[in-house]
Design a protein around this nucleic acid. Structure first.
Lengths: 332, 332
DNA sequence: TTGAAAGCGCTAACAC
DNA sequence: GTGTTAGCGCTTTCAA
């Protein structure tokens, strides 16, 4: 029914081996033979079976991608970067959502390894010990994208979250603010707890400002949480006049909260975000934001993975991409 | 090196067939035997090779997903719906972006079929004749998600775009507007040209309003296009007072354009959108919008695909999901 | 430059 | 209940 390599071999009066050679671009085939085989392939509409090929060659030219949630813009952006580079190197991608749930992450890892992927790009906001251990046992290379493994044992691609956050808070400090809040996503996420928060604290302390725990709020990274954060923080006896938001949605929530209670941004209230998604330009005032270049991170991670799969020597497993702050109108 | 079914058979003193049976949950295995095998599997950390399994069984438990662009929220939402249901039925997903480019769509189809996917979910804003033909030749089932095939030859999941659009325009008409603009995404997309636009025209004509071609603007579905559309339309001698926007970004661009030139929404200008992404709640005023339930469409499409792959009888290949309009503040 | 043949790791009759 | 065996469709030595 389906045409196999054997069928074209027979029709072309050559052996399977020869057909295999022309299909795989092996040069050791006489041009005339190649031509003949190619014609038969065309005529029979032969399409190589990648599964059989994978079994024989032990390579599937597909990589696994485990991300928390594809419907979240930040991860979708990274996924696009990963897929673009994968395509460029002729890999396909098996994509799955973990919802940042350790058990799912473990199952997915196992499933993908069962499917014999040649490598894995992983995004996880919290590399737990168990996950870490499973990853160590992987027979194929894994690279972390926009995800921090504190043991520094895996290949990874990130920006300098601490430095970027420090600069963001500093910008607010330089504008004269004494009461600066940090409105964060989940503190279970390594990046939030170990970098953004720590950088916030250090910037405050370095500037001899009072570090007030009441000014640190954490919930999820959503718009509604931003609005809520505004409400609780603005109700303080001595409310903040500036905000360092962990995400664009949080920042927008904060801004809308402020505006809805008649405060002017940035005249009275200043907000700096950490993300710079396309949302940043779609609010008034437009967001000043640390740029978290997810597309690039995904792309670089995938490129790194191809190198490792290809056994090229890697100079640096822990890639740090340069960051910058995009200045717009939510900060003076 | 890697442990195979043969290794566990040997260690457990049973045949490969028996191991295969326990791995596949076949009931014809004595409990004691099963237990013994399971222990060996655990001890040896045996992980079945899905590629070998796929070659032998001719099923890969993976489906292909071809979408225009995963970094676009609308498609990401659908992808999430697809993946959730796929996971539920133990399928994995090979995801690829077509950029709505016919050639890429064709190549991707071919690649995925080569990888022996068991089925395909396809999103394409324009099913061209060539694409149509390739899809017809697919040896595995294909279902269209949020995509219209006018021949109605393939399984598909959609909403009633025409009716939904008609209702949207009608809402504006009922609010007394005489000059209503249609600000659309690309008119090459079937949904835009055959449904939204046609419904707009019919609603205008049915209400005995003047159908003015100057009020029909098409570019891409972006925020910036929305702003531009505002600029060109508001510069008209007899500018529109209401807008039917093809997407949330377009609607937000329109609103910001209006607000930036001092117009009040919805007091002076009313806008209704077609999408209802989470952006709809993140603008002031919040968007009134036709809801385009992409997550559901993806989920239902995948569910439909599982049924077809499973050779269940399908009562209706062309599923139409109910639609509704979410009323918020951009329309009075 | 080409062919023969031995797997790759598993499933699925079929036999016992 | 369990084992034997013949593939699944291809790659990859090894010879010629």
């Amino acid at each position: 029914m389906t045409v196999t390599i054997y069928d074209v071999a027979r029709e072309a009066n050559v052996s399977m081996a020869t057909v295999s050679r022309v299909v795989n671009g092996n040069q050791n085939v006489k041009p005339a033979t190649r031509k003949k085989v190619l014609e038969v392939i065309e005529r029979l509409e032969y399409r190589p079976n990648a599964v059989a090929r994978g079994l024989a060659s032990k390579k599937t030219t597909t990589v696994g991608v485990i991300i928390p949630d594809i419907s979240n813009n930040i991860y979708a952006e990274a996924a696009r970067g990963i897929e673009d580079i994968a395509t460029m190197y002729r890999y396909n991608i098996i994509l799955a959502n973990s919802d940042q749930n350790e058990e799912k992450e473990l199952t997915l890892l196992d499933t993908m390894l069962g499917k014999q992927v040649d490598g894995i790009v992983m995004m996880s906001d919290a590399v737990t010990p168990k996950l870490h251990q499973s990853m160590e046992h992987s027979p194929v290379p894994i690279v972390l994208a926009g995800s921090v493994d504190e043991s520094n044992q895996f290949a990874s691609v990130n920006i300098d979250y601490f430095q970027a956050s420090y600069e963001a808070v500093q910008m607010l400090i330089e504008n004269g603010h004494k009461r600066i809040a940090f409105v964060s996503g989940p503190l279970q996420y390594t990046i939030n707890s170990k970098f953004k928060l720590e950088a916030y604290k250090k910037a405050i302390i370095d500037a001899n400002l009072e570090l007030d725990e009441n000014l640190i709020v954490s919930d999820d990274d959503t718009y509604d949480s931003g609005i809520e954060a505004w409400e609780t923080l603005s109700a303080l006896d001595n409310p903040p006049t500036a905000f360092f938001a962990g995400s664009d949605e949080l920042a927008i929530g904060l801004i809308h909260g402020a505006q809805d209670s008649g405060r002017k941004v940035p005249d009275e209230i200043e907000v700096i975000s950490f993300e710079n998604s396309k949302l940043a330009r779609m609010v008034r005032p437009q967001l000043t934001s640390v740029v978290f270049p997810l597309y690039d991170i995904g792309a670089v991670a995938m490129r790194l993975l191809t190198k490792i799969m290809n056994k090229e020597t890697i100079d640096n497993q822990s890639v740090i991409i340069p960051h910058r702050i995009e200045k717009r109108k939510s900060v003076k």
